[in-house]
Simulated assay, not measured.
Amino acid sequence: MKSFSPILAGLVLALALPVAQAEAPATPDLKEWDIPWDNTRPRDPWVGPQDNTVWFVGQAGDYVATLNPETGSLKRYRLDPGTGPHNVIADERGAFYAGNQAEHIGLIDPDSGEIRKFRLEGDGPKDVHTMAFDANGDIFFTEQGGNRIGWLDVDEYDFRMFDVETEWARPYGIVVSQDNRPWVALFGTNKLATVDAKGTSHEVTLPREGARPRRLDMTDDGMVWYVDYAEGFLGRLNTDSGQIQEWPVPGGPDARPYAMALDDQNRSWFVETGHSPNRLIGFDPKTESFSEPATIPSGGGTVRHMVFDPEARALWFGTDTNTVVRATLR
């Protein structure tokens, strides 16, 4: 494990206040679907390759499910009690879920409901947290308690595990770059992490000691965007130059920005979970302006993860108030 000296050498912090609200992103149109399985914490929707299929997991209900947004119909795939599914991603092979409490990644056949389990390896906690496909359809993932970044070759059932240098760094949100490198938010410290093509881990220290990055996303040109949950900032790391720029979010230091995603115009969207009801806010880096907050109709409770569907130009997320939400961009 090495520190990421090329990036650290170029580290620059610029704190910027948003400019005038003119040309800010328009407030999205929100639609919520009530999930009938009460108190199951539906979360982490993923738009599947099949038409009208949105996957999500019930973290407190031990299920993976689909929603057809055209008809509102739902289908539930029950998992073993105690699985604690945390995240789901899907492609033509089916839906992969993170069995957070049961130490495996599962693959569900949408037609038969059959499940193939990939058991995690190694000592200590094996709490697969958040997953992301790489360019070959294999899976990078984080282990928050295990303090590792992992990679699964799906066809070969082969794992590679990369320890994070900082103790109790709590690897959390993850995204995979165009050059097939994972970038990870280390929620237990003020750092981001990555793994290079040789399998060497590197860490990037954020400028503020109190920062706690939780979720992140990445543009095609190598800009990593992240939200600082602890102190209420939206940040951007240029992975080529190492420059970091940050903006205080509209809700202030107690805003608790959590779920976040980028849209097709490289605008950042995030949910302030420190407010009740939770608030969805967009940020345009061209004008450095924030949108007017869109409040979650059900309140949201806590919105934990979000994805962007480019075909529908919509954001999807689940809530602790037992709903799945589509935010259609204008």
Results as ranks from 00 to 15, higher is better:
Trp151Val: 05
Asp153Gln: 04
Asp153Ala: 13
Asp155Arg: 06
Asp155Cys: 00
Glu156Met: 07
Glu156Gly: 00
Glu156Pro: 00
Tyr157Trp: 08
Phe159Asn: 01
Arg160Tyr: 04
Met161Leu: 14
Phe162Asn: 11
Phe162Gln: 10
Thr166Trp: 02
Glu167Arg: 11
Glu167Asn: 10
Ala169Asp: 05
Gly173Leu: 07
Val176Ser: 00
Ser177Tyr: 09
Gln178Phe: 01
Gln178Asp: 05
Gln178Met: 09
Pro182Ala: 08
Pro182Asp: 06
Trp183Val: 09
Trp183Ala: 08
Ala185Trp: 08
Phe187Leu: 12
Thr189Ala: 15
Asn190Trp: 06
Lys191Phe: 01
Leu192Gly: 12
Leu192Tyr: 05
Leu192Arg: 05
Ala193Trp: 05
Val195Lys: 11
Val195Pro: 04
Asp196Gly: 10
Thr200Lys: 12
His202Ala: 08
His202Met: 05
His202Arg: 13
Val204Thr: 09
Gly210Asp: 13
Pro213Glu: 06
Met218Leu: 14
Met218Gly: 01
Thr219Tyr: 03
Asp221Gly: 02
Gly222Thr: 09
Met223Phe: 07
Val224Gly: 09
Val224Ile: 15
Val224Ser: 06
Trp225Met: 06
Tyr226Phe: 15
Val227Leu: 10
Asp228Tyr: 01
Glu231Met: 15
Phe233Pro: 00
Arg236Lys: 10
Ser241Lys: 14
Gly242Ile: 07
Gln245Pro: 00
Trp247Gly: 05
